[in-house]
């Protein structure tokens, strides 16, 4: 859980469509550990971080799809094939991310 993300959720506009990405497990070296969260808006705004870089960009792309479909997904993001590897370094790990749509309706 991320307190900044929770705070943002509590201030969402009524019926505003967003998605939350949560790291649920990691293997090897990853920038952030399980429990880290990011909230994505349709316009691309992000609150919180699941590590930045390619991994977060991929999660954001999928988050937009999840907002459309309304169906949560689990994805594995592999950081071992990152740019670093092209330089002969393998420093990345693998993280599993749960991405779920979120829209609050207050009556």
């Amino acid at each position: 859980m991320d307190s900044k993300v929770l705070d943002e959720v509590m201030h969402l506009e009524n019926d505003e469509q967003t998605a939350i990405a949560t790291i649920i497990s990691t293997r090897g070296s990853t920038p952030r550990k399980s429990g880290s969260q990011a909230l994505f808006y349709r316009d691309g705004r992000t609150v919180g971080t699941i590590g930045g870089g390619c991994g977060e960009a991929e999660a954001k792309r999928l988050a937009l799809m999840v907002m459309e479909s309304g169906i949560p997904i689990v994805v594995e993001v592999n950081l071992t094939h990152d740019v670093a590897e092209a330089d002969g370094m393998v420093c990345g790990g693998v993280m599993e991310i749960f991405i779920e749509p979120l829209k609050l309706s207050r009556n």
Binding site: L6, M10, L104, S105
Partner: peptide, 9 residues
Amino acid sequence: MIDFYSALN
């Protein structure tokens, strides 16, 4: 999710 998030908050 409003009741879940309100309770969590």
